[in-house]
């Protein structure tokens, strides 16, 4: 061969593929992957969180040479993975409470340190409610102390386990059981909510990243990078929920992708409070493409529609794109 041809049909957009160099394939492409969250769990069909959890924990397992302890907040992930008498986890795993996973993980890390175990690493994980609402105090404490824990939030934008109630991650205008699609301004209120990744950055912890279940290479790279560091690290992963979003189970990854491509879920990395990298949008789409397939936004398109609300959501996406420079030609 005269010259190495790096190009391949799908490049690194797919999970793997037979011609890529091994180091360019994802952990998920290998037959040796750990399946940290294995079959038989009771997540709904097309569950983004189940997928995100396996992606993230498998990557962390590989980075930690399979010496990893996971602490799990109460929530869907916990409930569907460990109903007595069956567990789907294939690593040491502890569930304590809804709001304390960061503190429990800090305790595990302290115990390992006390015992001189420098090899075993600690990962804590929870949903958006457990992370940004009820567990936020503990999370902030973990950041503040720079505990040697990688915290992963699987964000499906509401309390799904309890039947789809609003969380601080529920997007504007989304219908939930506690923000019904009735009245003059149906769905969740505009302009509220928390951005935990930015708040994490404000703690100036070593590493903060956002990731999406639609971009596995990016997600694994971020988990791997995080695992290569010590101290408190935070990764926020967007995981669509067919049940709560009113979407088809087969559309989970598509929706995650559209969230990224529309600019509503920007992908970036920060070290010590400063953004160091962003994942550019590949094919920009209007927010409507993302919102329309989801029943939780159906009221935006019913009858005369909610043009103003749509415009406001589009403005949010545009602001993200400007703020993080997600579309390179729009930066300057």
């Amino acid at each position: 061969m005269s010259q190495r041809v790096k190009f391949y049909q799908t490049g690194t957009f797919t999970v793997g593929n037979r011609l890529l160099d091994a180091d360019q394939r994802t952990v998920q492409a290998t037959r040796e992957r750990n399946n940290s969250l294995t079959s038989g769990h009771r997540a709904c069909q097309g569950c983004g969180e189940a997928l995100g959890a396996r992606y993230a924990v498998d990557a962390a397992m590989r980075a930690a040479d399979n010496r990893l302890v996971a602490v799990n907040a109460t929530g869907c992930l916990e409930v569907f993975s460990t109903p007595y008498p069956e567990s789907s986890w294939q690593l040491p795993w502890l569930h304590s409470l809804f709001g304390n996973a960061p503190a429990v993980a800090a305790g595990v890390a302290a115990a390992l340190r006390a015992k001189g175990d420098t090899r075993t690493r600690v990962l804590a994980q929870g949903g958006d409610g457990g992370t940004v609402d009820i567990g936020f105090g503990c999370l902030s404490g973990m950041f503040d102390r720079n505990d040697d824990v990688l915290y992963i939030c699987y964000d499906n934008e509401a309390y799904m386990n309890t039947g789809v109630q609003r969380s601080a991650r529920t997007p504007a205008a989304a219908r939930t059981a506690t923000t019904p699609a009735v009245g003059e301004h149906p769905g969740n209120v505009m302009g509220q909510g928390k951005n935990p990744a930015l708040i994490a950055m404000a703690h100036e912890i070593p590493y903060v990243a956002t990731a999406s279940v639609a971009d596995l290479h990016d997600l694994e790279a971020k988990v791997t990078r995080a695992m290569g560091m010590g101290g408190a690290r935070y990764i926020h992963i967007h995981v669509p929920c067919p049940l709560g979003w009113g979407s088809r189970p087969c559309d989970t990854i598509m929706l995650a992708r559209l969230a990224v491509e529309s600019g509503l879920f920007p992908l970036y990395e920060a070290e010590h409070g400063e953004v160091v990298d962003v994942t550019p949008i590949r094919r920009r789409v209007p927010v409507e493409d993302y919102l329309r397939p989801q029943k939780r936004f159906a009221h935006l398109f019913r009858g005369e529609g909610q043009a103003e609300t749509l415009a406001a959501i589009q403005a949010t996406a545009d602001r993200n794109i400007r703020r993080f420079g997600l579309v390179p030609e729009e930066v300057s």
């Binding site: 304390n100 503190a103 429990v104 800090a106 305790g107 595990v108 503990c138 404490g141 505990d147």
Partner: peptide, 20 residues
């Protein structure tokens, strides 16, 4: 561990104890 609340104190203790 200087925790941020009693809830965190016992939570950290739970993690530590579970880790042996």
């Amino acid at each position: 561990i200087n925790v941020e609340s009693e809830f965190a104190a016992l939570s950290a203790a739970i993690g530590a104890s579970a880790a042996g």
